[in-house]
Design a protein around this nucleic acid. Structure first.
Lengths: 330, 330
DNA sequence: CTGAAAGCGCTTACAG
DNA sequence: CTGAAAGCGCTTACAG
């Protein structure tokens, strides 16, 4: 690999000059500049980012924390982030945290030292002191999809309203006995979605029924199991609200496995509008979360944070939720 | 961030000594060693990987090229890779190439200079001179899922046999008019799958029928469109073989949209056994490609390549395909 | 076994 | 506008 000295030699200038034309913020005579540019092109020279990084220049990389790429919902966001990063010359390091604090810590340990200029976090529970600590160090970071309150920049959906819209729609269609399959209530977004559920029911004068409320459910296997147990035990709801598409997918299958039709016997509604939603049978009615766009926004926000000198106050950007009506609700 | 000098000072030794105990391959007196370790622990010191990288030490990062994380099939492989990488202290940089040579080139340009120790490529078409060139430079790399012949290490499935098993199964179940929806024939793996299709038909004495063979089809939208057109034009196959699960998913929907039942009227078979396959309706019969395990294997192979001095001859590891029978074939 | 020195490939004050 | 020098934080021959 050719280095700056060899380029300097070929161009007949000093290494300093080469560096100056390449970094670009210090003026160089047009003629000299051209000679350097020619040599650079000729030798196909590219500065070593490690050396640049050592000098404090940007290494142009960001760390992305998500629970699991393998979850239906994250790839679209990841793609939005990566596309945006690439566009700005940044590289993205993927970290699967499985929502484990230990894993997060070990990634942070590993990446913190200048190998990365900032983080996008899609992983936060309410108690994340290690993340707040990073924030204290002025490490650029933005939360995506999930967030930790007002202290950190974030791009999130209006989760309460999304759930509200979903359940309100169910109510409007005449359903009253509405099951909610919710995620871990330690995660802010699930608390919000529950709040939306409750609000819609309250407005309709439908009392909360503990037997219809299921917490801390993850993914399709778990949601399927819960629904099967419920149905087998004789409970017979009008509709089931899965607070994520994976949960709704588990519901779809479990309901049919138990001999009921969707939506004729039981309506199902999801949350996410993942890529597969329209291809399910029946096509899933669900609340859209524009993952790709959210990824783009989060990444742009982060790069702005990294590249701007002064810190402005953190802002959490709340995007509107939108119900996508397909055929899984009667 | 504390650096090696400060640690040396606290431990009362030279920076050289600190470096020696940390890298570990040069002997240090037990007592000195302990002092250093104490200081390191005390100050929570971690060497700056940038500086280490500059000196030629491993930066411990790998670049992962896939067409698109958002495709159903890649996340599981990505996860296998990332888990393995993490276990070995490596970091993975995700690159979505969209099968574009230009994108690949720009990633290579960007990552080559020591920011990455090697590549995992899941992206190769048959003409990939830029990848072969990397290989020439002795850059460690391994192909995953797709490969480029014998010159490069690789972990792939026995694609021909997988397709053969699928179509043979169809034939055994009494189907004769079997449509194949195949991918881009420039991709080796799709040529192989086609070969398997042909072989199974030949063995059964069923002549190839051009009207049942569709090439260069990508993803569910395209496959759905093709199937709808075919069905509307009056062609009525016994079975449809989608050479990837996404294609099969498009088929499932299109067939039903056209008023036919799966599998009663038309059987459908896929390839991949993606996570969602069992949750489709009907659950999809498909050829399993153990993505996670393949990711693990590829990553281990790459790390071995990176960390071993001498190059051994490239080996392509071909894993056996396995048909997973569910309910989409009559 | 240990320290002082050189050097990895850059960038950026410091002179001129 | 340009060059020589120092320095980023390490590692590793070179002496001792």
């Amino acid at each position: 690999m050719v280095n700056i000295k060899e380029v300097a030699k070929q161009a007949g200038v000093s290494a300093s000059t080469v560096s100056r034309v390449l970094t670009g913020n210090i003026p160089v005579a047009a003629e000299t500049r051209q000679k350097v540019l020619d040599a650079v092109k000729d030798m196909n020279y590219q500065p070593n980012p490690l050396a640049q990084g050592l000098k404090g220049t940007r290494i142009k990389a960001i760390g992305l924390f998500i629970p699991n790429v393998r979850d239906l919902v994250f790839p679209a966001a990841v793609r939005g982030i990566e596309d945006t990063a690439k566009q700005h010359g940044y590289t993205v390091v993927l970290c699967n945290t499985d929502e484990s604090i230990e894993k997060e810590l070990s990634y942070i340990q590993n990446l913190r030292r200048r190998l990365i200029n900032g983080f996008i976090l899609s992983t936060a529970r309410s108690n994340s002191p290690h993340l707040l600590a990073l924030k204290e160090e002025k490490f650029p970071m933005v939360c995506l999809i999930r967030h930790l309150g007002e202290e950190l920049d974030a791009v999130v959906l209006d989760n309460r309203d999304g759930a509200y819209q979903a359940v309100k729609y169910l109510v409007q269609r005449g359903h009253r006995k509405i099951v909610i399959l919710n995620g871990n209530m330690e995660v802010y977004l699930y608390r919000e979605r529950f709040a939306g559920y409750r609000q819609a029911l309250e407005e309709a004068g439908i009392p909360l029924d503990k037997r219809l409320i299921f917490d801390n459910i993850n993914g399709w296997d778990e949601s399927g199991r819960v629904v099967r147990d419920m149905l087998n035990s004789g409970v017979r709801p009008d509709a089931i609200f899965g607070t994520s598409d994976p949960k709704a997918i588990g519901v779809l299958k479990a309901v049919k496995d138990c001999g009921f039709r969707v939506p004729d016997d039981i309506s199902v509604i999801g949350f996410d509008d993942s890529d597969i939603a329209a291809f399910l049978d029946p096509p899933l009615t669900t609340v859209a979360q524009p993952f790709y766009e959210m990824g783009v926004k989060a990444c742009e926000k982060l790069i702005r944070l990294i590249e701007s000198k002064r810190r402005s106050r953190p802002k959490v950007e709340v995007l509107p939720a939108r119900l996508v009506v397909r055929d899984s609700v009667r």
